[in-house]
Amino acid sequence: MGETFKANVIDHFNFWVAVVLMMIGLYAMITKNNLIKKLIGMSIFQTAIILFYVSAGVKDGATIPILEHHAAETEQVEAGEHVEGHPVANHEAHAINPDDYSNPLPHVLMLTAIVVGVATLGVALAVTQVIYKNYGTLEEDEILAKIKAAENDG
């Protein structure tokens, strides 16, 4: 049972949850009336995309994308300081197998996306504060009603 459960569910569960979170965020962005709720939905949408990317870079049995420290020192060992030291480790460090490390490329793309995401969230919150200053409310329907009333007066 464990094997079939893994084959049917685990293999795509991350991607399913990414789509579900994306749907939650999109639904909030479309239908929520409060502007801050809309922004929280936008952030959830964004993390869903990031979750999707990072899930695509996972490898079974792989470690974090940081090489072990002695790998950086192979050149000194190679130069003949102590040849009999760790011949196996030395050999392994020399031939880096890509399957042993998770894919660093999605991590880099998403790392910058998070920082830029919080900067854009800040801009959106600034716009929200200006809207509140001018209209006295954060509810979308009340803001639209006030804009319509102002148009009818003018």
């Binding site: 929280i40 990072v54 996972v58 998770s102 998403m110």
Partner: peptide, 24 residues
Amino acid sequence: MGAVDVAFTEATVGAGISAVILIA
């Protein structure tokens, strides 16, 4: 999932800064 740099960024930015600026 092994994305330690992304986790570090999310811990400082997502759980720290974005919660704080939302509350502000």
